[in-house]
Each structure stands twice: as C-alpha cells, then as structure tokens.
Design a protein around this nucleic acid. Structure first.
Length: 558
RNA sequence: GGGUCCGUAGCUCAGUCUGGCUAGAGCACCGGCCUUUUAAGCCGGGUGUCGCGGGUUCAAAUCCCGUCGGACCCGCCA
C-alpha cells in the first residue's frame, strides 16, 4: 500500500549570511553523507562501478509492534536531514517510510485485552484492531505513527507497507534471485556464525496455513523450491506463542510468508534503490545484519550497499529508555513542552555522541538552540569560522518550512515569568519592560511562555520553581525588624484599591519615612511574596496579585 | 574472543574528520553597580593536567600507538 501524501514540500530558506562565505567543504554530518552518496563510485564488495541514480532515495522504517517514543523518531529525523542536504545540492531526493507490518506481535501492550495472547507470533498486519477503528492492529498503529511523524518531520514521506509489497509481488524478483543463490547467501551468513546453517535452512519464513502465525512454523526442510514446516510452540523472552501443530508446505514464490531479516533488508534496498539508510550504532560491528545484507545486496542482487547513517541511541537521564525503568518519553509529552524543531535540532547534533535527554536540562537545550539562531541571523559572532558555519548549518537544516528568528526571551526567563503571572497580558507587559519582547515574534513568544509554563509545572527542579507557596516560618526569620515594619505599613495602605504607579511611589515614600534603604524594602517584598531576594518589578508584581491576598501574606510573615 | 563510540570548566556542550593566534559558549559561581523604570538588568572575573602515557611535527584537544574509565554491540532472532 502506497499512501502518497500531497502537501507543500519544504523549502530550505535562503540565508544571506550563507551566501557570502560558502565554505569549500561542509563540516555538517548530513552534508558529508550527501557528498559521500553523490561521489561514491564503486561497490564495496565487488569490483564494479555504481550506475548513476536518477534520484536519491533514503529509507526509514519502523517496526509496528513496539511503543512509539521520541527515540524512535531519530531514524526518520536524521534520514530527513540527509534528504535535505541532497536537495540543497540540487539533486532529486526522497524519503520513504516503510511499515514493517509483517513483524510478529511480540507482547501484549498496555490497553490491549489479555485475550490477544492468542495472536502472539502473528504478523501485526493480521491481528485485528483492538480498538475497532482500523482494519488491523498494524493499520491502527501506522496511523498513530504517521500522525506523530508528520508533526516532527517536514519532508513528505512516501509510504510503503511490507504486507502490501509482498501481496503485490513487488519482492518476487528478489526472492527468486535469493533462492537461486541460496548457497552464496548461506556462505555470507555463515561467515559470521559459529554454527553453520543447516541443510534445510531457508531465507524464507512461511506463515502457517493453519493458524496464520509467522513465528511458530518450524522449517523442517527446503527442497525443490518448497519448504516443509510444522507449527510448534515458540518461546521468546517471557512469552510463548502457541503453535497449532499444522504440518504443511510453503512455496516462497506463491505462498504467504516473508523473507528473513538477513536477506529482506538487502531486497528492500534493491527494490527501492536505496542510497542511504539510518541504523543504530549496534550495526557498526562487522558481523551485524547491516554488513551481511550489504554483501547479499551486492553479490547476489548486484545492488550497491547504501551509505549507512549510523547513530547513537538517545538516553534519558543517562539511562536507556525503557518501559520497565519507567523513563519513556512520548512524542505528545515532548510537544507539551517544546516544539518539534527542538527535537530535530537535538538529533541533528553530532551523531556518534551519546545524547542524554532530561526534562530538568531542557532550558539548556533551548539556550543552545537560541544561540544557534542568533549565530544564523548574524546577531552573534563566533571567532572560529568553521564552527560558525557548522552552527548555521545545524540550525538551518533543523528548520521546517520557515526559518525561525531568534526569540528575545530565554526559556528559563519564560518559565519564571509564566509562573509569576497568570494573565497573558501581564506576562507580555513584564517581558516588554525587561526588553525580552519582540513584537514581530508575538505568537512565538506566547508559545514559548506556554511551553515554559507546562515545563515549570511538571518538570522544573526545585530551584527553578517560583511559587507563591513559600515557607512562611523561614521567611519570618529572615526578615529584619525594619523590613517587617515596612511590610506592616505597606499592607495597611493596600487596604484601598491602588494602581501600579501608586504602589510604586508608595514603596519609596514608606521607605523614606521609616528611614530604611529602598533596597531592603524591595527585598522584603520579594521575600514575602516569592521567597526570593529578587524578582520582577515589585509594583507590577503586587498589582498582578489580589490585594487582599498580599495583605494577608504580609501579615503572616511579620 | 572480537568490534564501535564517548571522555574538553561545577553542569550542558562546541571545537577533533581538514593540526596553526592566549582552548571557547551558555548556565552555575564569585566580586562590583542601581535613591523614583528592582531589570532575575548591567559591568568585571575562566574557575581547565582537553582522561592518562608515549610518538610524529616548527606546532597536537585535533594525527599515530598504547593505556584507563564509561556506554554499547556481535558471536540467538528480527
């Protein structure tokens, strides 16, 4: 099934700063990949020239069985960056997304009825939709997946489903070639195995005619183009997929089933003429599926190995993201506290460095992003031109259709302002006074205030939390006699409705009358209200609160 | 047994591929400034054996060899 999406394709914005000093060789990793893709001449395992590609297709795919967390967006986001780099060089390039929907159901996720145990080992495309809104379990998750992808990726994806591909027979020619060269395939795979593959081994996994499972058929032999199998129980992890005992035959060129991973991947590359694909760093090792498939692709299918985009996996608080640790970050959680572009920026940084995300450090990431924005727009200079170009490019390639101008308000400042003021107008007023407001970026500023507010409420560490809920006793001890006298006088005066100007003037007159330094008076106000020594303009802070509340609070701390 | 990546300031990271000015930034921190716009502002300060040891070089965070520490992978399956 190919579900083409039609919408405007992304335009990389022209940047006047880039034009004046185009560096001879790009430092940014996606540009290097693009150059490698364009310039490579020969096969890796054969003495053979690579034919010219009309267009450069990059593949990204996802298994449909697992949970969708932000870590799984990395492959697609990083692949997209290489597509962008190729397009920037004037080449036709597209990004295809393949649903690995022939994969078996491996566990029963939360929210799925326990009776689904009977589907363990069944291709997810053949499992019914537990929620009843799609034609299958796979369809349901694919649609969820795509909703998310379209939020985070700005390139149009061309969509494929492995189920549909097999059904349409698009893989037949490759299956045929692989079966014809069975001995070569085995030899390639055996090079990296301790125990050589047996006689009856087949690169094709049949699906049981009796129960429709893919994990349970045990291949007993492969002769004359036909696989004989018996459907048996299959144990994996903590689960057992029940076999049905069916004994039968399967013809890879006619019957239902799929290729094994070490063969199928190679066939996918050849079928879509893939020039590059992302893969986790575990594939770098010489005996991984990547290199096995690479050799199969070249030696058997005569298709050159794609340029790999190997990357490190995302960590959360320095730990692997996993449901059992309970540190899974879902895309919707990300979107509550940050825009998609920030995740793209994060993933577009150096690939092979372990990146750890933590909610606590989110302001850091925003600051880095803002700095890149300022450099991109020439508002900040970097002494090292190499570094400056790198920063500009990293920023540029992370953008979607429009290139965002740098905001004047930092995320942590936004967090503070949005915690103190509840009223949108008061927030903006505060930013205007402190020079953190840009009228041209009004909506963007509001958005950041929203993100920051949610972040502060849910994830901010104690020290960046500003709250009117303070330790009264402690403040009481910290305030001097003079400060208390000030607050008492002030609170009495506040019994009538006052304007911000009046409040402001009154702070000074009371201080003068009592003969205490203004500094101490302001400090007293901040301590009493926020528990801090500093704060936003005192008069507007008080004006933004209910006067009755202020009076009560001042009385409490005195 | 084999392989890959990472290690730079208290923290988060650039800079390493392509060796070249005194090793940088943000945050944090320290010191100072503000009597009618108290702004989480402004001014000043780098706090470092670039994990360690050797080599190459006129010159090494950067290249080579070794080593230590951390993360992970292959030798099941996908």
């Amino acid at each position: 099934m190919q579900r083409d999406k039609t919408s405007n394709s992304p335009k990389i914005q022209e940047d006047p700063h880039q034009a004046e000093s185009a560096p001879p060789r790009q430092l940014f990793w996606a540009d290097q990949k693009a150059d490698e893709i364009i310039k490579r001449k020969r096969f890796r395992y054969l003495k053979k020239d690579i034919k010219k590609f009309d267009r450069y297709t990059i593949k990204t795919s996802a298994s449909i069985s697992g949970v969708l967390h932000i870590g799984r967006l990395s492959d697609t986001i990083r692949s997209e960056s290489v597509v962008k780099a190729l397009k920037d060089r004037g080449y036709d390039s597209d990004l295809i997304w393949v649903a690995e929907d022939m994969d078996p159901l491996r566990k029963i996720p939360e929210g799925v009825p326990q009776e689904y145990k009977k589907y363990l080992g069944t291709p997810v495309t053949d499992v019914p939709d537990p929620w009843g809104c799609h034609t299958s379990y796979a369809e349901h998750h694919v649609s969820k997946y795509l909703e998310v992808l379209n939020e985070f990726v700005s390139t149009d994806l061309t969509l494929f489903s492995m189920k549909e591909e097999y059904k349409k027979g698009n893989f037949k020619p490759y299956i045929k070639k692989i079966l014809e060269n069975l001995e070569d395939i085995k030899e390639i795979i055996n090079k990296h195995r301790q125990n050589p593959l047996g006689r009856g081994w087949s690169p094709w996994t049949p699906i049981c005619k009796g129960c429709g499972k893919i994990i349970t058929p045990k291949v007993e032999g492969f002769e004359n183009g036909k696989i004989t199998y018996r459907c048996e129980d299959y144990k994996f992890e903590h689960q057992t997929a029940k076999g049905c005992g069916y004994e039968g035959e399967n013809n890879p060129l006619k019957d239902y089933g799929k290729m094994m991973w070490k063969s199928e991947w190679a066939a996918q590359w050849a079928r879509w003429e893939i020039v590059s694909e992302g893969a986790g760093k575990e594939y770098i090792v010489p005996s991984s599926a990547w290199w096995v498939n690479a050799e199969i692709a070249e030696k058997v299918l005569k298709f050159p190995m794609p340029v790999p985009i190997f990357y490190e996996h995302l960590m959360i608080n320095g730990e692997k993201m996993s449901a059992s640790v309970g540190n899974v970050v879902y895309p919707h959680q990300w979107l509550e506290i940050a825009p998609p572009v920030l995740l793209r920026f994060f993933y577009n940084k150096k690939l092979m460095k372990t990146r750890s995300f933590s909610f606590k450090d989110l302001p850091n990431l925003y600051d880095e992003y803002d700095r890149h924005a300022r450099v991109y727009f020439g508002k900040e200079k970097i002494p090292n031109p190499k570094e400056e170009n790198h920063m500009k490019r990293l920023y540029e390639i992370s953008q979607s259709n429009t290139t965002e101008k740098p905001l004047k308000v930092s995320f942590s400042h936004a967090a503070m302002v949005s915690q103190i003021f509840t009223d949108e107008n008061a927030k903006i007023q505060s930013l205007k006074r402190s020079g953190h407001y840009d009228r041209m970026l009004h909506n963007e500023t509001l958005k950041r205030l929203e993100y920051a507010k949610r972040w502060a409420a849910r994830y901010a560490p104690e020290e960046s939390r500003i709250s009117l809920d303070i330790d009264i006793k402690k403040i009481k001890q910290n305030l001097s006699k003079e400060q208390k006298a000030f607050l008492t006088r002030f609170s009495r005066w506040l019994e009538k409705p006052r304007t911000p100007e009046e409040i402001h003037n009154q702070i000074y007159s009371i201080s003068k009358e009592l003969g205490i330094p203004f500094k101490e008076a302001f400090k007293a106000i901040y301590l009493a209200v926020l528990g801090t020594k500093k704060g936003p303009k005192a008069a507007t802070l008080i004006a933004s609160l209910k006067q009755s509340w202020v009076i009560r609070r001042f009385n409490e701390v005195c």
